[in-house]
């Protein structure tokens, strides 16, 4: 499964279909697979993906809109003469169960300009905001709900 994905990636990246090159591709895919399996045997660190692809796509669209809005406000701060910065470091609780869900939430916070996840704790993120206002908590809670939906709906 992983090997087939890697091989598809090779074909897409090279775009050449000569037997020699495909042979090289197969060989390197096999070597990588062998090394990875050895590494897996060593640390046993596994990532199980429990996401529903459809909801993830929907979430990404929503995130894009959110990023556009956030960019607009940060742009106004940067371009204005006085730069009305209102910095604040605050806690945001998260409700995702898996590591991957938490990573998605933390990265979404950082990806929207104006807020950055600074530290992860047991059930909170420390978030730094450039232009903090009281609605931010609510907006982040909304994002948290949406990420949690993406996560729990899957279970494949």
């Amino acid at each position: 499964m992983t090997l087939a994905g890697l091989f598809a990636l090779w074909l897409l990246m090279s775009g050449l279909f000569k037997p020699l090159l495909i042979g090289f591709g197969l060989a390197s895919v096999l070597v990588v697979g062998w090394i990875t399996s050895r590494m897996d045997a060593q640390d046993g660190d596994h990532l199980d993906i429990r996401l529903s692809p459809l909801r993830l796509a929907g979430y990404l669209l929503w995130l894009l809109a959110e990023i556009a809005r956030a960019n607009w406000s940060v742009m106004r701060i940067i371009l204005s003469r006085r730069m009305p910065v209102r910095q604040h470091l605050f806690r945001v609780p998260f409700s995702q169960k898996t590591d991957l869900g938490q990573v998605i939430f933390a990265n979404s916070i950082t990806l929207t300009p104006g807020t950055i996840t600074v530290e992860t704790e047991r059930d909170n993120f420390l978030v730094h905001a450039l232009g903090y206002d009281e609605n931010d908590d609510e907006a982040l809670a909304e994002m948290d709900r949406r990420v949690a939906q993406v996560e729990t709906a899957g279970g494949v």
């Binding site: 990023i67 960019n71 940060v74 940067i78 730069m83 910065v85 910095q87 950055i116 730094h128």
Partner: peptide, 26 residues
Amino acid sequence: IIGSLGLWRLPDFWARLHGASVTESA
């Protein structure tokens, strides 16, 4: 350009982080 301007203009490191993230996202 706005992102790098932010990286230049904003007053301190924590604010500049956000300037850089404009370049990185938008």
